[in-house]
Amino acid sequence: MKSILIVKFGAIGDVVMAVAAVRAFARPADTVDWLCGKAVAPLLACYPWINPIVADDKAIFGGSAPARVREIARIWRLLSRRRYDLCATLYYDPRYRILTLPVRAASKLHLDKQDRARRILPGRHHSREILRILSGRPDDADEISIPPARPEHLPPSPLPNRAAPIRVAIVPAGASNMLRQQTLRRWPVELYVELTRQLLARGWEVVLIGGPDDSWVQPAFAPLACPALIDTIGSLTLPQVVAAFGDSDVAISHDTGPLHLAGITPVRIVALFGPTDPASFLPRGQNVTAIWGGDHLSCRPCYDGQDFAPCTSNLCLQEITPAMALGQIDALFGGPGGQPWQILQPFNLRGVPSE
């Protein structure tokens, strides 16, 4: 039995992908402590094999100097009492390693851009790469595709009883975290609104999913207000968001945290990508389809793991039409169950008629 410490504060998607890797790495008898931020702690608590150690990340990264010192000292006191076989800091930024200075561990590792063995290589899925780094596996050819780790403990669905044959969850905002906005990853809100209009016209239910910082998007959907449009933006905890996805038939999202929360449920997924590479971030589950816009753009993908190009208009995402998204929703319902994940380019989908 080993004792493992993982340091990964966020963001949501990064933590979900790391959980899948840690589950594949750790044995059932191993103890896994996870130093995390407040935002993701309720999600990690849904996994009984993870012990969250919650840090005040706002104090560490945005607080005053005294607040920062107090919080780091508190973490040091907690961690100095424990001994680990492995301490894995899943960051390149050396500042995170300050938090584990007093940790007694037989082995310590961190991400390192100068060392291929400890670098997440572009074009590869992050869960697979984190597993390779944790295990020290050689970088040989393999067919490993790590599925998302579904949480064992979730609350009941927060959604009302169904009043329609199909329930669709959409994520029209997101793409931000405590350290930066990443708005280039967003599919334009007006396209989400048009897609919602078409879904409601079919007599389907649409659930709006988002966090407290996503309220800016709600006025765009106000003209579509009706009993079949269920707005949960800003009202759900992370575990409740997962439960809401699990109580839906299909989820539509660009590359943002809730996409990965949908990925840890059985819901069908249509994911919309542009500046980021779906090979690195798409949940590797069944009945998951990505549309990767911008197949004719030489700048795609422009995300280098930290920053985006200084782009003022995400043409890559704008060229994905509501008709394309709707077509893939229909394909997921019309095809055989248990379809493997796939990545489609717009040139495969152009000519799809609009409704």
Rank of each mutant, 00 (worst) to 15 (best):
I120R: 13
R77C: 06
P227A: 08
A271T: 03
H126I: 11
T256Y: 09
R68D: 00
N51E: 11
V352L: 15
V54F: 05
L349P: 02
W187Q: 01
G335M: 10
L259D: 04
H126T: 11
A163R: 15
P227D: 07
A201D: 12
F61R: 11
V54G: 02
L43M: 14
F347R: 14
L154F: 12
D330I: 08
D140M: 09
D249Q: 07
G274W: 01
K58W: 08
E143Q: 11
H125M: 10
P336G: 07
R74T: 10
F61V: 00
V22S: 04
S215C: 04
P301R: 03
A169C: 15
A220C: 11
Q218K: 14
N161H: 15
L111R: 13
S215Q: 14
I269Q: 06
S298Q: 12
I98L: 15
D231L: 05
R23C: 02
D214H: 06
D56T: 09
D142H: 15
P219I: 05
L43S: 03
L282G: 02
M178K: 06
G246S: 12
Y96M: 14
L44P: 06
P278M: 03
T89S: 15
W34T: 01
Q181N: 11
L259P: 03
L297C: 09
M1E: 07
L191Y: 13
P94D: 08
D139P: 02
H126S: 04
D56Y: 03
W292P: 02
L282F: 07
D277F: 02
R97D: 14
M324D: 00
I72E: 10
A20F: 04
C36H: 05
P156T: 12
G335T: 10
L179Y: 09
P188D: 13
V40K: 05
G63F: 03
D249P: 10
I144H: 07
G334H: 13
A73W: 12
Y84G: 02
Y96V: 15
G294W: 01
H296D: 15
A39T: 11
K108Q: 12
L349K: 02
R74A: 14
L200Y: 14
L78M: 08
R202L: 13
W76Y: 03
A175K: 03
P212A: 13
G203C: 14
G274Y: 04
P155F: 09
P94I: 09
W341K: 00
I320Y: 00
L159S: 10
N51G: 07
I320W: 01
G293H: 00
D140P: 04
R95W: 14
P155S: 13
Q306K: 07
P66D: 02
D33S: 04
P219D: 06
Q240M: 06
P322W: 05
A228Y: 04
P94V: 13
A45F: 06
A149K: 05
M324K: 01
P223Q: 07
Q181G: 11
G123Q: 09
L208T: 05
V288D: 03
S176D: 11
R185D: 01
A323Q: 01
D140W: 13
Y84S: 07
R118I: 08
D277Q: 01
L236M: 15
A73K: 10
